[in-house]
């Protein structure tokens, strides 16, 4: 395997890790798969495009705008889609429908504004590549790698070391008990949605840079889902490992059989993985309590 492929794989993997983490955070705290996440990415990437990038501002303002948009959309989604369902103690299926409906709504709104056209972020660098030893690496890939790793490290710090991180872990483990201990679960859930939205916004922007902006690009969220299944549903570490593996795997598939087959191959890998080791690499066990 050439160094070039490895670098591409890792850089794709970190973007997938952002998606998988944002997804896993919400999964952990509310125990459902948030399917509006893909459309959240799309919507925030588009907001960043229309508000910032199209005015010729640089990469960093675009990323910040996208992350903020993601946080805002995610927070609104929590309020509109999930708050009352949680309060009514409705069955978990309602979270699911609510999340697809929200996804459908965001994607519908983006389609109203952008139609079915393609949009491309402007080139953020004058010389798009650098030469390192014998390999050509695009600056965008490096930027993605650096920012994603920074975001992941920041999250790890927040979750492990701060009081809000402890509260998030407590609410994820057992919401009712945490509430009895005086933790404001609603606030923590909002915080998780904001963090998840920030990650979604960053990922959406990166995906827009890497590929093109379309109203349906949210379906790339599938990669994040595959990564979290491989890593172990609900495990944050597992999500990162799964995403890196998937990124590298895809880079190899991509160089050997082309992009269409790569999608299918990674799906097949997930199926096989579920057969052999359904609990994922991290071995998280999401079993119902008896």
């Amino acid at each position: 395997m050439s160094f070039q492929i490895l670098i591409n794989g890792i850089s794709t993997g970190t973007v997938y890790a952002l998606i998988a983490i944002g997804f896993a955070l919400v999964f952990n705290i509310l125990k459902f798969s948030n399917f509006s996440y893909g459309a959240t990415m799309t919507a925030s990437a588009f907001i960043a495009y229309f508000l910032v990038a199209s005015k010729g501002w640089g990469l960093v303002p675009t990323l910040i705008c996208s992350a903020l948009a993601g946080a805002l959309i995610s927070l609104i989604g929590e309020f509109v889609g999930f708050r009352r369902i949680l309060k009514n103690h409705s069955p978990s299926t309602y979270f699911f429908v609510s999340s697809i409906t929200l996804g459908s709504l965001y994607e519908g709104l983006v389609t109203l504004k952008a139609g079915t056209n393609f949009y491309v972020y402007p080139n953020f660098f004058e010389t798009p590549t650098i030469q390192l030893f014998q390999t050509v690496i695009s600056k965008e890939n490096i930027i993605m790698l650096v920012i994603s790793v920074a975001a992941l490290l920041a999250l790890a710090f927040v979750i492990q070391k701060t009081s809000i991180g402890r509260a998030i872990r407590a609410v994820s483990f057992d919401r009712d008990t945490a509430q009895l201990m005086g933790i404001n679960a609603t606030l923590i859930i909002q915080a998780v949605f904001i963090i998840s939205g920030i990650f979604g916004g960053l990922a959406g922007c990166f995906l827009g840079i890497k590929y093109t902006l379309t109203a349906t690009m949210g379906s790339l969220v599938v990669k994040g889902f595959i990564a979290s299944v491989i890593g172990g549903l609900g495990s944050l570490t597992g999500a990162v490992i799964g995403a890196m593996l998937l990124g590298i795997m895809e880079a190899i598939f991509l160089s050997t059989m082309g992009s269409g087959w790569a999608t299918i191959a990674s799906f097949a890998v997930m199926l096989v993985f579920l057969l052999i080791r359904p609990q994922g690499i991290a071995g998280s066990n999401v079993q119902e309590k008896a």
């Binding site: 798969s33 599938v222 889902f225 299944v229 549903l233 999608t263 799906f267 997930m270 579920l274 359904p278």
Partner: peptide, 20 residues
């Protein structure tokens, strides 16, 4: 592979299948 598992998995897997 998915009917043995939590019901979430079927949504994740079918979504991937649709894209494939």
């Amino acid at each position: 592979p998915v009917v043995r598992l939590r019901r979430d998995y079927i949504s994740l897997v079918t979504l991937g299948f649709g894209e494939s």
